[in-house]
Design a protein around this nucleic acid. Structure first.
Length: 274
DNA sequence: CCTGCTACCTGATGGC
DNA sequence: TGCCATCAGGTAGCAG
C-alpha cells in the first residue's frame, strides 16, 4: 500500500541499518515473492554481495550492491522486518517471504498477500516497471512547468493522471485524492483544461501532501524490529480519503466515493467542482 | 504507440 | 455462527 512517502521513510530508516554490510546468504521462503527469478539464481547473485546504499524510484525500494541491485516493491501489504542476530532466529508464527542474512542480523521481506516482490537486477532500468517511471514526485525536476507539460501532453481526468506512474512516479490512490481535495479540483477535470492558477494549486497541493506524509512517516520512523509496525503516514493526515459520507473538513458537505479506473476516488462535490 | 480491463493474492469486514 | 460478496494504499500483461 505504500506510496512514495512511505517508501522514502523506509529507505531513510533502512540506510544506516544496511549500508556497507555484506549479505552472507539469502533465503527464499516463498518462491512467489521472487517470481520469475529462482532461489538458486538469487543465491548466486546475492551471496557475498555488499550493500552500498538504499534508494528509491517511485514506489520501488532499491538496494544498491557492489554487484547489481535489488528492487523491492511492497504493492499493498509488503513490509520489511529486522531481526538482530543476538535475539536468535526469527520467532515462529511470523510470516517471512525472503530474507537477507547479514553478520549481525536478518533483513526480511514480508508480504502475506504475495503481491509484492523482490528482484535482482544488473541495474534499476533493467526492470521494465522502473524504466517506464515518469518524473519522481519528490524530485527537484517535478516543477510547476513540468507538471503543466505533463498535464497538457495527454488530456485525462486529473485523478487518472496523478496515479499514472509513467507520468509522475510515486503518487498512489490515497495521496491523489488528498492532493485534489487540497487543490479544490475535481478528479474528473481534464488535465489539459486547467487555468494557470489551477495548475499552480495542483502542483503546490501535491508537493505539500507528499511532504506532510513523509514527515508523518518519519515521526515516528518505521520500526523494523517490531513485526507489528506499519506505515504511519496516512492515518494522521487524511482529509478526504476513506471518509465517505463524513462531512468535508472545509465546507461540511458529504464526502463522496466514486470509481475511476477501477479504483476508489474520494472527493467533495461542493469544494471540488469542474 | 495508447487506453482500459483483468489477473495476481489473501485477509478483513459487513450483510443476510 | 456461517457463508458469501466486497473491498483493500499496485502493477503487469494482454486485447483492442
Amino acid at each position: 500500500m505504500p506510496e512514495a512517502p512511505e517508501v522514502e521513510a523506509v529507505v531513510r530508516t533502512l540506510r544506516p541499518l544496511v549500508q556497507g554490510k555484506q549479505i552472507h546468504r539469502i533465503r527464499v521462503i516463498h518462491e512467489v515473492a521472487v517470481r520469475p527469478q529462482s532461489s538458486a539464481f538469487l543465491n548466486r547473485r546475492l551471496a557475498g554481495a555488499h550493500i552500498l546504499d538504499a534508494g528509491r524510484r517511485g514506489k520501488y525500494l532499491l538496494l544498491m550492491l557492489d554487484r547489481g541491485c535489488v528492487a523491492i516493491h511492497f504493492k499493498f501489504d509488503g513490509q520489511l522486518l529486522w531481526f538482530d542476530k543476538a535475539a536468535g532466529a526469527p520467532p515462529r508464527g511470523v510470516h517471512l517471504d525472503f530474507t537477507f542474512e547479514m553478520e549481525d542480523g536478518t533483513l526480511a521481506f514480508v508480504d502475506q498477500r504475495h503481491l509484492g516482490h523482490v528482484q535482482w537486477l544488473c541495474k534499476p532500468d533493467d526492470s521494465p516497471g522502473i524504466k517506464a517511471l515518469g518524473v519522481d514526485a519528490f524530485s527537484k525536476l517535478f516543477t510547476l512547468p513540468r507538471l503543466v507539460e505533463i498535464c497538457r501532453s495527454r488530456p485525462r481526468p486529473l485523478k487518472i493522471l496523478l496515479v499514472d506512474q509513467t507520468r509522475i512516479a510515486g503518487i498512489g490512490n490515497i495521496y491523489a485524492s488528498e492532493s485534489l481535495w487540497l487543490a479544490r479540483l475535481s478528479p474528473w477535470k481534464r488535465s489539459d483544461l486547467l487555468s494557470p492558477a489551477e495548475f499552480k494549486r495542483l502542483h503546490k497541493a501535491v508537493v505539500s501532501v507528499l511532504a506532510r506524509a513523509l514527515e508523518c512517516c518519519l515521526h515516528p520512523p518505521p520500526d523494523f524490529r517490531n513485526p507489528q509496525w506499519w506505515f504511519n503516514g496516512v492515518e494522521k493526515m487524511l482529509r478526504v480519503y476513506d471518509r465517505e459520507v463524513k462531512s468535508c473538513r472545509r465546507c461540511g458537505s458529504k464526502i463522496r466515493r466514486v470509481e475511476q479506473g477501477g479504483r476508489s476516488t474520494y472527493f467533495c462535490a461542493n469544494c471540488q467542482r469542474q
